[in-house]
């Protein structure tokens, strides 16, 4: 029942991309082989591919920065330095700082028990870990409203004890944790399965206890995969919109994350402000892509060594 490597493209990039990058190719001008296309076909297809990507990926990215700087650098920095914008940055950081470690603490033991032991019901467990990816972000927020909202299961009890979860920071953290739930585990499971358990067996045989084995043998082996999962998890945590939108009360300076603040500014026709905050998120996306490429490269090197 599990989605295999092919079905989880984004999570298996560590394995995929480096081989794409470092493969030795036939030199131009060499006689055409059976696996090669004529020059005009190559040019045409490359042109179509780059045109499509330029149109759908590069243009929106350029538009974010272009619109943010439309009124000049002064207006841009005023918008970024606005108190409500800074409050939204702070809340986004808080949400990511709680939900990402939470999912690391979940992902490592989950990957450990799935990769190191065989038991019945394993593929069902993997499918259940995948579930949040199949759920619409809006529904991810809705289900927490049904549990913790004023009309929800725990609503009356929470009101009685004066605990606020929905329309407050805890709700935002919970919804973020839900949507980023599978990232770390999905990254580690195939990696740890491929590595097998021989090194751990050796450590146990030599007298190490379980914790020593984990810290000194397993963790060093999975560190690149773990870092990769954390990078992806963090990008999604900071950028999540739909789920957080449902559980946040959209209170300026209090329960607005950066993506929600972008929406509010945009709906008030404050376009420079909206795109200025959006440009910070776009920068985060670019940094994520760069870090991801570096980790993939290091991972490939570690494998080649």
């Amino acid at each position: 029942m599990d989605l295999t490597a092919a079905a989880r493209p984004f999570f298996n990039m560590a394995v995929v991309v480096p081989s794409v990058l470092f493969k030795v190719r036939p030199l131009a001008g060499a006689p055409l082989r059976a696996t090669q296309d004529p020059r005009w076909v190559r040019w045409l297809l490359t042109g179509i591919a780059l045109g499509f990507l330029g149109f759908f990926l590069v243009l929106p990215l350029v538009a974010v920065f272009g619109e943010a700087l439309r009124r000049g650098l002064g207006a841009y920095f005023t918008a970024v330095g606005d108190a409500d914008a800074l409050a939204s940055v702070k809340l986004t950081l808080i949400a990511a700082l709680i939900s990402v470690p939470a999912n690391v603490v979940f992902g490592v033991p989950a990957a450990w028990c799935i990769a190191k032991y065989s038991f019945r019901g394993k593929s069902l467990l993997i499918t259940l870990i995948d579930l949040p990816f199949a759920v619409s972000p809006v529904i991810s927020g809705l289900i927490y409203v049904l549990v913790f909202g004023a009309q929800g299961w725990l609503g009356p009890w929470l009101i009685e004890h004066d605990v606020k979860i929905i329309f407050a920071v805890p709700g935002i953290v919970l919804a973020t944790t839900f949507v980023t739930f599978p990232f770390v585990a999905r990254e580690l499971i195939p990696l740890m399965q491929a590595q097998g358990s021989e090194e751990e067996y050796a450590a146990i045989t030599l007298g190490a206890n379980g914790w020593q084995t984990f810290w000194r043998v397993t963790l060093p082996n999975i560190k690149w995969g773990l870092l990769y999962g954390v990078i992806l998890c963090n990008a999604r945590a900071m950028g999540e919109f739909g789920a957080v939108s449902v559980v946040s009360g959209h209170i300026r300076g209090e329960t607005n994350t950066m993506p929600l603040h972008v929406e509010i500014l945009y709906n008030e026709y404050n376009f420079v402000g909206a795109f200025a905050v959006a440009s910070l998120l776009a920068l985060l996306a670019l940094v994520t892509l760069v870090l991801k490429s570096i980790v993939e490269w290091r991972h490939a090197q570690a494998h080649a060594a």
């Binding site: 990926l57 538009a63 619109e67 950028g239 376009f271 998120l281 892509l289 991801k292 490429s293």
Partner: peptide
């Protein structure tokens, strides 16, 4: 390599940012 890395942009770019950028275009 840059083009290859860029393919993942829709995963990394927050959806709200993509939304307002596409609208601006």
């Amino acid at each position: 390599r840059i083009v290859d890395a860029l393919v993942d942009l829709p995963f990394a770019l927050p959806t709200a940012v993509a939304g307002i950028a596409l609208t601006a275009i």
